[in-house]
């Protein structure tokens, strides 16, 4: 059972699929945020404010929905029936029917929100409120506000994992900080990350935090840090490696921690990354 990395590059207007067979490029104007469920791949277009449903294997478009202004994150519910779109320019979260694309709910969320995460049960949706310096926890069914967590700086990203909500926020001019919050409130731990905050990816026991490089942070401290130039805005774990996109200098890289090298996979300026495992 193999896996493929799918990257969206809005500047080039293309989707890239990197698998064992090589790199495949599929044109898609404004391709930005990505998510997948089953055989369907969803991709939000920055240029036309729409969401495409594509065949995840062939990257052929199958359907087109109306989206929102500048969708920067897409998440599919665990059952695959609902799509959540984070509209950065609309300061809102939009819930859509994944089959028909019919809008179901809309909720205000922060100011220029940047990150969004759904908890593993599919009941809670967290949003990094951007300039409002807060993380919001919404009821995923109703998009009603459940909890507001004030943060000391602009919130860049959020992630759920291991019963925790992780939030990455700016802490100073060129520094970030990851805060681990317990499900019932209260901070469990926090850790600094050097450089402007990028993106988060929950992993078992902790979180990968992207900034100037990537750090694997756990309750006991940083397991390892891999410094890089640029800004790691999207980070994910796949096949024992960390895949990341550099938002400043461009490029998609694969990192083998803790001492392994860093290899450039794509020269593209990826807006979003997705690890897709083909069905057996």
């Amino acid at each position: 059972m193999g896996g493929r990395l799918i990257a969206a590059d809005s500047a080039a207007g293309a989707l890239y699929s990197l698998g064992p067979a090589g790199v495949r490029r599929a044109p898609l104007p404004g391709a930005a945020a990505l998510c997948a469920h089953g055989a369907a791949l969803y991709c939000a277009s920055k240029r036309e404010d729409v969401i495409w449903r594509l065949d995840a294997r062939t990257l052929c478009p199958q359907a087109l929905f109306a989206g929102g202004p500048n969708v920067t994150r897409l998440i599919a519910s665990p059952g695959g029936e609902t799509l959540y779109a984070l509209c950065q320019d609309g300061d809102s979260v939009l819930a859509l029917c994944a089959r028909t694309g019919a809008p179901q709910m809309l909720a205000r969320a922060g100011q220029q929100p940047r990150g969004m995460a759904l908890d593993p049960t599919g009941r809670l949706l967290a949003v990094a409120g951007g300039g409002r310096c807060e993380a919001l926890v919404l009821d995923a069914r109703t998009l009603r506000l459940v909890r507001r967590v004030p943060l000391p700086g602009p919130a860049a990203d959020v992630a759920f994992g291991g019963g925790m909500l992780y939030a990455l926020h700016q802490a100073g001019e060129t520094a970030g900080r990851v805060v681990a919050l317990r499900a019932r409130g209260g901070m469990a731990w926090s850790a600094p990350v050097p450089g402007l905050p990028g993106g988060l990816c929950a992993v078992p026991g902790g979180v990968l935090a992207g900034a100037e490089g990537v750090a694997c942070l756990t309750r006991g401290g940083a397991l390892w840090r891999a410094p890089m130039e640029g800004l790691c805005e999207r980070v994910l774990a796949a096949q024992g490696r960390v895949l990341l996109s550099d938002a400043l200098l461009g490029g998609v890289y694969a990192l083998t921690p803790p001492r392994g090298g860093c290899e450039q996979l794509l020269p593209a300026q990826a807006d979003d990354l997705l690890w897709y495992t083909d069905a057996p």
């Binding site: 995460a117 929950a202 078992p204 026991g205 694997c216 309750r219 024992g240």
Partner: peptide, 22 residues
């Protein structure tokens, strides 16, 4: 939980395509 790295590999599982939740 205090010494996670010695016991398990945080990168043992791939990220979920639906939104990176564990």
């Amino acid at each position: 939980a205090r010494r996670p790295g010695t016991w398990y590999n945080p990168l043992a599982r791939d990220s979920d395509p639906s939104g990176n939740a564990v």
